[in-house]
Design a protein around this nucleic acid. Sequence first.
DNA 1: GCCATGGCTAGTA
DNA 2: GCCATGGCTAGTA
Length: 101
Amino acid sequence: MQFHDDVIDIIKQIPEGMVVTYGQIAAMAGNPRGALQVAGVLHSSSDKHGLPWHRVVNRLGEISLPRGSGYELQKSLLEAEGVEFNRNGRIDMRLFQWSPK
DNA sequence: GCCATGGCTAGTA
DNA sequence: GCCATGGCTAGTA
């Protein structure tokens, strides 16, 4: 599937220390309303393709995974790359959101 | 609201 | 086919 493959390509390009949004990826892959599908791809194909899945967050700059089920891991992976979280557990997207050239 | 996916029944043949 | 189910979100209030 084209969408699926595009999503994977895009995610692979996210540089270390940067993040992108589900919707952003969906739009880049040609389906502005496919945010949920992007989440699906992440959920199912992250391991197989060795994707930097932790660099994908929701539009508010927060981690979407539930506490105790991925949240902590994702947060620590991002912090290890220099991404900072404020007291609300959010990332300042003006500083860390990546967009391709 | 949106939309692709996956699981699980109808309902033909 | 139908229907529930997501690692979601634009656009009101």
